[in-house]
């Protein structure tokens, strides 16, 4: 057996150990389940995205108006719906239970 093949075999063994590492570290785990977003968490995430989007749009509109990129007329037309959207997203976020808090109390 040449040196190169021995090195190849050593590489293979090293790789196998690395691949098996999660099982070697936790041979008998309490749970082998992958964490997953619960439906509540997913709902909260979607609402948080909507809220951030609305708030970012508001911020950008303010900055654009201040910089003169958006006229007073366009600003007046856009600001109302954006504020409404942000308020609705914030309200909706409040109505969905905080999954982490629920899990902690349980």
């Amino acid at each position: 057996m040449s040196g190169a093949l021995i090195l190849g075999a050593a590489l293979a063994v090293l790789c196998v150990v690395l691949v098996a590492l999660p099982f070697l570290r936790e041979p008998d785990p309490l749970s082998d389940e992958l964490d997953e977003l619960t439906p509540e968490r997913r709902r909260r995430l979607a609402l948080a995205e909507e809220r951030d989007r609305a708030l970012a749009a508001l911020k950008e509109l303010e900055a654009d108006h201040r910089a003169g990129r958006v006229s007073d007329e366009d600003y007046r037309i856009s600001i109302g719906p954006l504020r409404r959207e942000a308020a609705e997203a914030l309200r909706a976020l409040d109505t969905v239970p905080d999954a982490a808090a629920v899990a902690e109390t349980v």
Binding site: A57, R69, V70, S71, E73, D74, I77, S78, P81
Partner: peptide, 9 residues
């Protein structure tokens, strides 16, 4: 502007 822009703007 995002969403809509008036012609005057």
């Amino acid at each position: 502007a995002w969403r809509r822009a008036s012609l005057r703007g």
